[in-house]
Amino acid sequence: MMQNSLVLALIAGLLQAVLLMAVSPLLSGLSRVIRAKMHSRKGPGVLQEYRDIMKLLTRQEVAPSNCGGVFRVMPFVLLGTMLLVAMTLPLVTQVSPMAAGGDVITLLYLFAVFRFFFSLAGLDSGSTFAGIGASRELTLGILVEPILMLGLLVVALIVGSTNISNISSTLASQQWAAPTATAMALLACAFAVFIEMGKIPFDVAEAEQELQEGPLSEYSGAGLALVKWGISLKQVVVAGLFLAIFVPFGKADTLTVASLLLGTLAFVVKLVLVFVVAAVIENTLARGRFLLTGRVTWMGFGVAALAFMFYLTGL
């Protein structure tokens, strides 16, 4: 019985992860379309990302002569860790498909695995731009981590558990036990998630010349295809993490086909909404100086701290 449920959970999780991976280029494409519209350009179609990836996958990979093994394995590790996170998020159902990995702290540290290898590959290529990009990626991580941790901690404290399934189902059923605190935590996490998705003013995830995307600058061909795909998947996964915790409404609470379909539909609508909102915000902002990012992220941390204060006072 134990064995069976574990196998079932693994299959369900894997299915969810593969589906997310399959749709992630679509959402990146959507972001590109919205940007083009806001720039009054014609722009590529929604499916452009798929075309890019498919084309790149057939091309030869050429790397600098000095790069080592980390550079080579990074694309696979990148997609692997994000698939693992995707397996554990309760996106469509109230409970996580794979509860064994569904601890919020574990999830945050899985993102650290992503960041670790992503930046290491940048240094491994020996390129200046890749190196600076790696440094910035990690610096941003340091600025975001406290916001995300404190924001998630507030909801975890309200629920009394750090497991994402518990948080999600309690927030869905209890009609927000501490509404102000939860709302503030939502705000703080939305801010952190926006940064993690790699958006202006902090980052431009799809612009090759940008330093932020620096670790990619030496990738080419099939390797580049996988890394681009990995970054798209990361954006979807980060948005999914946010939705799973803070917008748990419309999820399937029973495991019937109808409710699962309804839950999937609700999730798709929520996900598209997040991407549209993020794209609109991104394109109305200007790119800021990197070294001043710290001043902006203090605001996010302030909001998270405020959420915690509201939690303490029981609001």
């Binding site: 996958l57 030869q60 050429v62 790397a63 099939a222």
Partner: peptide, 19 residues
């Protein structure tokens, strides 16, 4: 990576210097 590339794709090489 390996299925899509198939036998058409040239092999991974290390060549030249970074950009």
């Amino acid at each position: 990576y390996s299925v899509k590339g198939g036998s058409d794709r040239l092999r991974f090489t290390r060549r030249g210097t970074p950009w």
